[in-house]
Every structure is written in C-alpha cells, then in structure tokens.
Design a protein around this nucleic acid. Structure first.
Lengths: 224, 224, 224, 224
DNA sequence: CATGAATGAGAGTTCATTCAT
DNA sequence: TATGAATGAACTCTCATTCAT
C-alpha cells in the first residue's frame, strides 16, 4: 500500500500511520533536503493536514531522528549477521560492502548518510553518531581480522575503513531509484572492486610509494 | 593575514576583501551548513556588518556559487595537468586520487562536494554540474585507458569511477583541519588502496601498516 | 460590519476575509501610498498579525493587483451598461462622466487612478493597462459617436478624451470621504461642466450656481 | 549643456551644479517615482558619486522639495502675469489653462502634480500645499470674475476649478516628451475645450477637427 | 480527533546616510 | 575636496508550531 493511502482509512493502526509518515518524510528529505522540506509538504503528500503530523511526532526534528534510527537499525542489523557468520576478514569486508551498498539504495539507509546531522539537537546527534561509530568499529574490526588472518594486506585499518566506507556511503549521493543501475549490481561490483582494487591481477609492477606521480585527475557522475 | 583583519583598513584591495569573504563563508558553510549560516555569521566573523557583504556579492547564493567556482577551478586546473602527462591508465588514476584527495582537505575543494547543489538556482546548478561532469569524464577516461593498456582489470568504468571518486569525495565529510590525519598522508594511502585494493592474495609490497596501530578512537569514524 | 471585526471569528468565510483585507489595504494605499503602507499596517488595522495576510495573498503586490482588478471591474461594468443604452454620443459622454466620477469617490475606483502602476510587475501592469485602454477606448467611441451624430462639436476625440477623463480622474486626488462634497453632487456637476463647458456666450439652461457661494476655504484645492 | 556634463568641469558654478542635480533628479522622479529613485541613480546619471550629492543637498527630501519649489515658482510666475493682464474672466481662465497646460509638459511643472506630497515632511508639505492653494485661489478668482462679468455661466467656482484644473493636472500623468503630441498643441486644444465644452448644441466657431481623424491608436490612453 | 487559521521569531535584502582616507 | 566603503534601520516574506472550532 502506498503511503499516501494509509490515511484514507481512519481505523488504521497508528503504528502504520507513523511509519507512513516516516517513509514519506524520508523520501522528501532525500528529494529536497531536510531544510527545504516543509511540514506541509509531508502532510500534502499524505493527503492529511499539518497538525495531524503532530499527533504522531512532536516536532520536525523527531521525524528526522526517527529516520536516522530506522536507517541505522537496518544497517546494524545486517552487520550483526555478518559478524556472526564465519570467514576471513576479507570475506567479511566483502560482505560488509555488499550489504551496506544495498542499504545505501534504500530510503532510510540513504537518510543516514545523506542528511545533515547538524539538523539534529546535540543529544539526538550524539545518539546517531554513536550508531555510526558502531558501524565504523565493525568495519575496522573486520579489516583488523583480515590483517591478522593474512587475507588483507597490512595497512592502517582506520584509513582503509575511511576509504571503503566512503566509497559505499557516496552511493547515497548519486543513486536514483529510477536510474539505470540496479542495487544488486551496484553492490556486487562495489564489493569486488573495493576488496580487490582496480589493478590488473597479473603483470603489474609494484607502485612506487609516492614515486614519480604526475597529476592525473578525472571524475564522472561519480562526483555528483 | 587572518580574514578578520582584512576589513580593518577601508582602502584595502577589494579583491582581497572579496576573497576574505569567500574564505570565511566557505568555512562557515562547512561548519554549519549553508542554510544555517546567516549573512550575519559571515559578517560577524569578519568584524563587519551584514550590509557590507552586499558591496562585494549581490546575494547569499552568489557567495555560494563563487565557493563552488573556486573549488571546481582548483580541481579542473589539476586535472588539466594530469591529463597532459604520460603513464598508464592505472598511474593516472592513482595520480587522480592523490591530487583529488588533497583538494578534499581544502575548504573550497570540500565545498564542491559537501554543499548541497539544491541551494543553487537552476542556472548556477547547471554550471556546477557541468564542471562535475567534466571531472567525472576525466576519471572514466583514465580508467578506460587503463583497461585498454592492461594496467586496469576489465570492469565497468562507470562503476569503477563511482567507487573511486566516492571514496575520495567522502573525505570532505570527515576530514577536519585540526584532526590527526595529515592531508598528504591521506592522499598517499588512498591512492594506494583505491588502485590496489585491500586484498593480499597476490604478492606485492605491503602497504605501510602505519605501525601496529590499534583501533583509533577519534571522534570521527569512517562512516560519518 | 467593520473590517476589523471580520477576523474575530476564525470560521468566517475566507472570501469575506479576503475582501476585508482588500478594503483595508485599499484605504491604506490611498491614505499613505503603497510604498509607505507596511504589511504590518494592514494587519494591525485588521487586528491580525502580518503572516496571517499571507494566508489570503501570496505577497504585497498581489494585494495591490487585486485592488486594481476590483476597481477596473467596477468601472468596466458601468461602462458596459452605458454603451448598451441608447442616446446621442454627448449623452453617453455625460453618462460616462457621471458614473465614472461617482466611482472616483469609491476606494477601489480611486485606487485605479491614484496608485502607481510602477509598483506592479510587468505582467500585472500589462493587465491593468489593458483595462485602462479599454476604458479610454469606450470614451473615445462615445465622443466619436457624438461627433458623427452631431451632438458633439468636431474635435480630436483623442484630445477630448484626455481632457474629459483627466478632469474626472483627478477627482481621486482630492476627494475625501469626510469632505464637504457629496459624490453624487460632484458627479452631477462634472457631467454638466465637462459636456457643456464654462462659457456663457449663448443662452442655455444655466448651470445651477449652487447658491451665490463664495470662495470656499476648505483645506483641499482644485490643484491638489 | 546636458546635465551629465556639468560636473565634468570642477570649476563650474556651484549653483549650476545644484540645478543640474535638480534637473536630473526631477527626470528620474518622473520616470521611476521618488521612492524607486535611488540617490545612486541620480549620482550615476551625473557621473558623480553619491556623497557628492550631499555637498549640494542635505538629504533626499530636500532635493524633492526643491523640485516642488522650482515647479511652483514657474507656475505662480505665469499666473501672476495672467492676473495682471486684462480681459474677461473666461479669457483669463482660457489663458490659465493654456499656460498651465504648457507647464504640465515641463519636468519641474510635472513634478508638482505628479509626485506624492506624502514623501515630504509635514513642514515642507505645508509649504507646497500653500503654493497649490495659491494656484487654486487664482483659478477660482478668474472663474468668479467670469461669473460676475457674465462671460462664464453661473456655477460653483469651486467645482469648476476642480474640473478645469483636474483636466490640466492630469496632463502630467500621460504626457511624454517623446510622444506624438506637442505641448503647444495640447495647451491650445485644452484651453478651447475646457472653456467651451464639447457640446455642439449652439452654433459657434467649430473646434478644429484636426482632419477627419479616426480613433488614434497611440500607446497612451486618456485614462492612464 | 482533525482541521483551517493564526502567530512568533527570524532571514535576506535594501538604501539613505555617514565615515575614513 | 571627493570618494569608496560601511552601516543602521527597515521591510517583505517564511515556516514550525499552536490555537479554536
């Protein structure tokens, strides 16, 4: 049932209505940004009136916070499953990227990385940041495990996590539900690329660390 | 000279003052977001009054646009240099990551990727997006070259660009000038990781492990 | 019901409230001028707050435009009636002056001629000017008819229209609702004078001298 | 010498510069309205800077007041001449209309009737209104004389003055220096029409029909 | 409960006027 | 002196939130 129909029936479960509001708000936040999304916009899309929103949420920020909570819930849930399953560190990282990338194509997941924490109150922000640190910690742990079990080349796990998570996070900036790329396909390729790199597997000389580097540079839809 | 001193002398070069405003605005936009940054905030930090800003910029959006232009100017300038030099595709990608990552730690560079294009008018947005497409196109070209010269493993250049650029773009979300990581170090490690991946399956020189560092516990994690 | 009471009841017909706003705004525009009339002035006189006005009009200019529309509506309505009735051209001109003069003592009618079109956007201005041209065209047509049917002395209809309409338009500049001259009386005398002139060279039915009135010394003079 | 050249020579008479400012300001006030005319607009058109204006006038309102003074001076000067010459009351009214109409095509004269007295301080407004009452008084006197000497049909001189002056005043609302109607021609026809009316019921010298002119289609209509 | 109406707090922008050189 | 720069005081418009029915 589309969200905008949920309120047609007065007898609907309040929890369902609350969720419909969240879904709609999340969509609008992603489309227009939090600041440019008016309470009226949310209400209009649900065919209800503005004060009705205040039956379910005490203010706009609470809606935002719930979007964050829903999204981080989805993510942490998946990560817990990955941690519980076996495999090398590299395999866990690969699974992390795959699952995380998939979530970056889902509204609530995208909200977590795309919206601006500065719109939250300090207290709410602290809660969200704790969740994010948790996600980060899981990824670093996988990397660390990989280094220890030899599946991942020795490196700074912090930096590796920044790089890996950044690539995946950025998906939320360019992914469009009606675009040409399917979430599953994105997730699959990202998982491969981010663990094995771009370098051709054979016939490659080691790169000089900071050697005779020139100034290459380029970007695509990738940057926007 | 700190920006807040530039306006102490009424006869100072207007171009210098304009730039001081831009620098200050860029900082504030990054700290608080564009929408939450008031013209008064900018003026206060420069020890001038709000209307004085309107001597140099006709409105708030123009300041934003100029931040974008300055940033894209820095980036495209570097790209021109990289494209002109030789090397394999992979080497060019590595150079791209290195230079681009460095720029993602500079205020104007960060603005390009961190601020929200939706705050620009359609016309200005089109201009910025054209610049971003240009950057994107260059990266895809390098990847394509790498595939053709065998330095990069066959893959979808579009997706590879998304992944690579995303990781670098995301730097602008977590980098803090007063943080523990030096831009140069970030750039160097990103260049290595994004081209060679994390996998240790094949023999190569190890990425420097940066000591046996344990999970750092800085405020900022990879996902935020 | 005075306008300031209309908003006492929240459930009153919105159309009534809209009209109350227009009436109040028209009064203020005539008293103080459009530019000097603040949205707060309008709101205060209605015992509401400024933003409440924006429930009924999207901006100040729309209020102005609606005043123009209401006024031109009144005028064109009357002119249509005159055109439909019979009589010589001169009689139609006389009726025109009579009715038009009456409307120049009504707030909305006065707005049409007293307010400055330059305060309107180009599009709105075009609309208003079209209405005014219509009024003008009707008067010229009456004059032309009069010339053809012999009731009006041969003359340049354009210039005659300028003169006649000008005299009547100017009423909106000096008429005061609380002044000594009744609209009906003004209209009657203007209709006579503007069609038969001041000259007494030949015998004709005398204009009523309104008694042997001496130079009245009211605040308002003919030129202001 | 065009006003904008006056300031090219530093040695010019300050009185000349003052007058150049007034001429320029009067033009702008008529073109854009007082409120929309910025001090910068005046300065720009004279190729000087804004503060330079404050050498010659202490504030914007003083410029406005001087425009009024200059205009009323022109008018009262002419009226004095008319009062001093002989003739019937009707002839004086005709002369009044002729001369006054001519002045309504001159910048300073137009300012007197076109600009809004509400932009003046109470004191300055009182001064201007005294001048206008003077003008009005002269016209009423001429009419009164005409009634007494039998050249004007008995009527309410107050109302007759309103009508006559109104028609002429309104010229300042539609006259354009670059329009098709010459001031002299306007003045001549107005003088005739406003004294002898439009009626053809009695034989008299015909008003020149200006050829068999059809409805002219100039941009500007009588009501605007 | 639900809703149309209303508001308080504030943001960007404008412009006559004045300062500092 | 003459000017580029700066400001104070307003004003329009916005929007999350609450009231009254």
């Amino acid at each position: 049932m589309p969200h905008r129909k949920v309120f047609a029936n007065r007898r609907r479960d309040p929890a369902t209505k609350r969720e419909a509001i969240l879904q709609t708000a999340a969509q609008l936040f992603l489309e227009k940004g939090y600041g440019r999304t008016l309470m009226n916009d949310v209400a209009d899309r649900l065919n209800i009136t503005k004060p009705a929103l205040y039956h379910y949420f005490s203010n706009k920020e609470e809606i935002l916070l719930e979007c964050y909570r829903w999204g981080t819930g989805l993510i942490l849930n998946k990560l817990g499953q990955i941690a519980d399953q076996g495999g090398t560190g590299l395999e866990k990282v690969e699974a992390f990227v795959y699952e995380y990338a998939n979530l970056m194509t889902v509204d609530f997941g995208r909200c977590v990385m795309r919206l601006d924490e500065a719109d939250l109150s300090p207290k709410a922000r602290a809660e969200v940041r704790a969740c994010k640190r948790n996600i980060d910690w899981r990824l670093r742990t996988f990397i660390q495990e990989g280094i220890e079990d030899g599946s991942i080349t020795p490196c700074d796990p912090r930096m590796a996590a920044f790089s890996t998570a950044g690539a995946v996070n950025w998906i939320c900036m360019w992914y469009r539900p009606d675009g040409p790329l399917a979430p599953e396909e994105i997730a699959r390729q990202f998982a491969r690329m981010l663990t094995h790199g771009l370098s051709a597997r054979r016939k490659r000389e080691a790169m000089e660390p900071n050697g005779a580097r020139k100034m290459p540079k380029g970007e695509t839809g990738a940057v926007s």
